[in-house]
Design a protein around this nucleic acid. Structure first.
Lengths: 137, 137
DNA sequence: CTTGACCTTCCAGTGCACTGGAAGGTCTAG
DNA sequence: CTAGACCTTCCAGTGCACTGGAAGGTCAAG
């Protein structure tokens, strides 16, 4: 599979795939006689993993270290488990934050729904952004 | 309140606060005779709102447009409501994504827990990163 | 043999959200 | 009056994750 096919299959650009290779996220594939990169299906799975991890908020550096560990084969799996657990904890934290923000925005939305534009005009500022029920962190 | 106090109160740096002012997120405060910025308590609330919105994944540009709308006073509150609803939808989407990733990582963790390091050594690659139960998007 | 799609490397630029540092002004305590 | 903390502006740099473009090579179809 050439880089264009892999790009199409993974939903990335060829640019991004070369960038990931250079960043150590994707191993250098074999080349054809003409010098083209020749990917196996495994590469697509790897890219999928990268995107997955990325959407979890992991940086490319973190993903690289995770992949390097996974790849090295002679890795203490316990360490892999620890890494995964760490990232799970991070995700839980982000979930909590997001839920908090959703709560805030919902409050905002409710206030906006019951706010008369006229009332906004009276006060100098739209009353929606008033004292917020935002528990200080 | 001077910028250092505001920084301490909001958990930001003075640099960041000036940056936010320059970015149009925080109105230019009045100055003391000596030229120091002189903030009211409202500024702290505004910064809290910015951080809140930011942790929801909104960019500073989005937050600025939201604040500008809220500030202009003569804004159709309906439009504010629409904006908030949009961002709520985005948050819901991010929550969905995060939950999916959490599922994936948990599967990974479970596999790692039941994987014998010896088995990893046999296959060229740690078996944890195998075929993933990742429903293609 | 040429056209066009696709590939190669290399280097530079973008957008976001800050962050650092220089050079200098202000204010309070001793 | 001076030291030190804190403030000012301005400009440049950082880190991340790409993205664009130039200059040129490869390959299948016509």
């Amino acid at each position: 599979m050439r880089i264009g096919d892999l790009a199409a299959r993974s939903g990335l650009t060829t640019k991004t795939i070369r960038f990931y290779e250079q960043a150590g996220l994707l191993p250098e594939p074999p080349r054809t006689a003409g010098g083209y990169r020749d990917y196996s299906d495994e590469a697509a799975a790897r890219l999928a993993f990268v995107r997955e991890a990325q959407s979890a908020g992991l940086t490319l550096a973190e993903i690289r270290s995770l992949l390097t560990l996974l790849d090295s084969g002679q890795v203490p799996c316990a360490q892999v488990t620890r890494l995964i657990d760490e990232h799970l904890a991070e995700i839980e934290e982000r979930l909590r934050e997001l839920r908090q923000t959703r709560r805030t925005l919902r409050t905002l939305a409710a206030r906006a729904a019951t706010t008369d534009p006229a009332e906004c005009a009276e006060a100098g500022v739209c009353t929606i952004l008033g004292p917020m029920p935002t528990p200080a962190p």
